[in-house]
């Protein structure tokens, strides 16, 4: 079992430029059903065996796609997300980094009017259900099917976590990269809720980072609604206030968003927090051993 994506998911790629095409092929090689690409003006042609369409509407009509991976560059990315939503695509995975935050504020309000549609990202590695479906830029082979659900704000740090888990024989149900921007489509609480309801997920690892109050809110949610064991890590314990650490969301400002506050809040709500990023896998393993 898994959340959001499985072997039946039919995926489009919006923005079949160099990066989009490269990763669409990577997903196809992993076994994902990549059913088409969207690049306005290239409709009717194909690229590396992937049929191209001018609009998402046409692509959906002809392929029955129910998910999309957005690689459109920042100036047009918000519009691409809105087009996918308007065409009724249920799962939109926005990989694009650098979308203006006010564009995302507008997108978020539009999507709120369409409750059946989920957005993951932007500025995220994507989502993967090991052995079934990869929508994104993560290296597929490090993942193994299994019972751990992963929620993360970053890319390579998630790979680090997956790598450590897989090495300990702990496979993953689904790994969802929610993205490092201030406004994202699916947040920690949305993902926690899905993992809690997924019978294939036994435990959850949440990779957070400094900035905002999402981890604090997630901690409160876990205490109330999540019965499965949850482990966590917060990146940025040494980051100084007022400095943006690469991700647009990773900045400690106005007294909120510090790693210390987040760790306290998680621990107070029963979450096992890894102190060192070298201990991500071990922390989950110990937590499970304690439960069994």
């Amino acid at each position: 079992m898994s959340i959001l994506v499985d072997k039946n998911t039919r995926v489009l790629c919006q923005g079949m430029g160099k990066a989009g095409t490269f990763h669409a092929l990577g997903c196809r090689d992993y076994g994902t059903q990549i059913v088409g690409g969207v690049t306005p003006g290239k409709g009717g042609t194909e690229k590396e065996g992937i049929p191209l369409f001018n609009t998402v509407y046409e692509a959906v009509r002809k392929t029955g796609a129910n998910a999309t991976m957005v690689f459109v560059p920042p100036p047009g990315a918000a519009d691409a997300i809105l087009e996918a939503a308007d065409a009724g695509i249920a799962l939109i995975v926005a990989i694009t980094e650098g979308i203006p935050v006010l564009d995302m504020a507008r997108v978020k309000r539009e999507l709120a009017k369409k409750p059946g549609i989920k957005l993951i990202g932007p500025n995220c590695p994507g989502i993967i259900t090991p052995g079934q479906c990869k929508i994104g830029i993560m290296p597929g082979y490090i993942h193994k099917p299994g019972p751990i659900g992963i929620i993360s704000r970053s890319g390579t740090l998630t790979y680090e976590a997956v790598f450590q888990l897989s090495a300990l024989g702990l496979g993953q149900s689904t790994c969802i990269g929610i993205g490092g921007d201030p406004i994202i489509g699916t947040n920690q609480i949305d993902a926690l809720k899905m993992f809690q309801e997924d019978p294939g997920t036994e435990a959850i690892l949440m990779m957070g980072e400094i900035g905002g109050t999402a981890e604090e809110e997630a901690a409160a949610y876990i205490k109330k609604h999540v019965t499965k064991p949850v482990a966590a890590f917060i990146a940025g314990q040494t980051a100084p206030p007022g400095k943006r650490m690469g991700h647009a969301g990773a900045i400690i400002s106005g007294g909120t968003g510090s790693a210390g506050g987040k760790i306290r809040s998680l621990e107070e709500n029963g979450v096992a927090v890894a102190k060192s990023p070298a201990d991500l896998g071990i922390t989950v393993q110990k937590m499970l051993a304690g439960r069994r």
Partner: peptide, 16 residues
């Protein structure tokens, strides 16, 4: 480091 999350974590583990 490659990636912001891993870069922050690398700073953290140096301090650790």
């Amino acid at each position: 480091v490659n990636g912001a999350g891993l870069a922050m974590s690398t700073m953290d583990i140096i301090k650790y």
